[in-house]
Design a protein around this nucleic acid. Structure first.
Length: 444
DNA sequence: TCTGGGGTCCTAGGACCC
DNA sequence: TCTGGGGTCCTAGGACCC
């Protein structure tokens, strides 16, 4: 029997915004999506006031009247605080799976498996609760971010336990013992089970399955026939049978996507080229960060689907590289070619996308080169590789975009930047990742 | 005026191969 | 008149997650 913990940061983005603004501690805070479009995070105080995903423009006045603090999203801040939380969690076990920016699974089995003793659920209860209490207390003390902690013999049960922990004052809940499980799953709506979303829960409801306990009683074979193998595994996990193991090593990604709404609708070919060049450069940089190379690139341009009064277009084109690459210059070249194919006069574009696919790790890329490269090729590529590494290092040290290609350069030198840059009017300082934004303590 | 971004996996059906 | 069987690969569509 395994012991899985799931640590989940409470209202993560909103909590990050509060870390350096203690005067906001008990105030409602919401965080907006890119381009200040929708509400994507709410502090506990803000949850009763506004629904997730609400377009900001519809509730702007209402939020102002109710004293809600509104922030643009600031991913360099959230990413850095997430990293601190993950490092803290690694205090208790090296077996950590970072599941998302604000969640991690911990395999705690090793902390309890002593050779002389088989732990029963009862033996486990008290020491496990003590450990949970310690984790829930330590993470906010070290990072400023409050968390909830759920425990179970499978990841799906740890997820469910975490869900239950959120509504408890101690922010801890365990589903380790079969008895606890039976009672808790009885009142656990099926749509809250990890892996069962809106559509599937409707389908389950049609068969009269409304709670996790209902699902557990069903024959897995029947689920397999009427749903898919994924739902069968979910059922088995709810029974305590492990189907989704801890994934310690992050796998090579299948695709890398940079897609963004523009600050305003764009019709100019030049502006589109600059925006796509910037997306492509940023995708290439992410590719290098995970030591990967891509085999093909897709560029897509979309008009605003809400503007039914305007002509619509959602064109995409793909092109393969001659060989897998992570070279910004080559990727930009192909992106430019595709942009010219996709772009059409007379449309007002609202968003653009660059997608890199056919991703392989660099060792695969190198073995491919070894097959076909001449000596000059090897030399040329080595230089290019060093150039990219130097660019990445400079940008890491002095800020994203310090060195960039001419293709990305903004023609408009006004202080808002180019017209495609999404607006973020309520952005907090990047307190922990930018020297200029470092908080300053002044002596009296 | 204003509506996010970035991923994964499974299945069914068609093309193609021997 | 009769018209196999088994496999792989690709794609589109649908579902999920945060």
């Amino acid at each position: 029997m395994k012991i899985y913990g799931l640590a989940d940061c409470n209202s993560f983005f909103a909590s990050c915004e509060k870390v350096f603004r203690p005067e906001w501690r008990s105030r409602p805070v919401v965080v907006l999506s890119n381009n200040d479009g929708c509400i994507i995070a709410r502090s506990a105080e803000a949850k009763p006031l506004v629904a997730m995903g609400t377009p900001y423009f519809r509730v702007r006045e209402f939020l102002a009247r109710n004293g809600v603090i509104v922030r643009s999203s600031n991913f360099s801040l959230y990413g850095d605080l997430s990293h601190r939380v993950m490092l803290t969690l690694a205090q208790w076990t090296a077996d950590v799976e970072i599941y998302s920016i604000d969640e991690a699974f911990l395999d705690l089995t090793g902390r309890f498996a002593q050779p002389a003793k088989e732990w029963s659920a009862d033996d486990l209860r008290t020491p496990l609760a003590r450990l949970g209490e310690e984790i829930v207390a330590t993470v906010p003390r070290w990072t400023g971010i409050p968390i909830s902690f759920g425990v179970g013999p499978t990841k799906t049960l740890a997820k469910a336990a975490n869900h239950l922990a959120k509504s408890r004052p101690d922010r801890y809940f365990s589903l380790m013992s079969p008895d606890e499980r039976l009672a808790a799953l009885q009142n656990f709506p099926i749509e809250e089970v990890w892996g069962i979303g809106r559509r599937l829960s409707k389908k389950f409801h049609r068969y009269g399955l409304k709670t996790a306990a209902d699902l557990v009683r069903v024959d897995p074979k029947w689920i397999r026939e009427n749903f898919t193998i994924v739902q069968e595994m979910t059922l088995r996990e709810l029974r305590g049978e492990e189907c989704f193991p801890l994934e310690d090593e992050p796998p090579t990604p299948q695709s890398i996507r940079v897609s963004r709404s523009f600050g305003e609708l764009i019709s100019s070919r030049e502006e589109i080229h600059r925006a796509i060049a910037q997306f492509a450069a940023s995708a290439a940089q992410r590719l290098r960060r995970c030591r990967c190379a891509a085999s093909a690139i897709i560029v897509q341009l979309d008009t605003n689907r809400f503007r039914t009064d305007l002509p619509q277009s959602h064109e995409a084109r793909t092109i393969g590289f001659a060989e897998p690459t992570s070279d910004t210059i080559s990727i930009l070249h192909h992106a430019k070619f595709l942009t010219d194919q996709v772009y059409q006069e007379g449309f007002a574009y609202q968003r653009g996308m660059v997608l890199l696919v056919g991703i392989v790790d660099q060792s695969t890329e190198r073995s491919y080169r070894a097959l076909f490269d001449t000596e000059e090729d090897v030399d040329r590529r080595a230089k290019r590789f060093e150039l990219m590494r130097a660019v990445d290092q400079v940008n890491r040290a002095f800020g994203t975009g310090k060195i960039h290609s001419a293709a990305e350069s903004a023609a408009r030198g006004n202080e808002d930047g180019p017209s495609w840059r999404p607006s973020s009017k309520f952005r907090s300082p990047s307190y922990t990742t930018c020297w200029a934004d470092l908080p300053v303590v002044k002596a009296k």
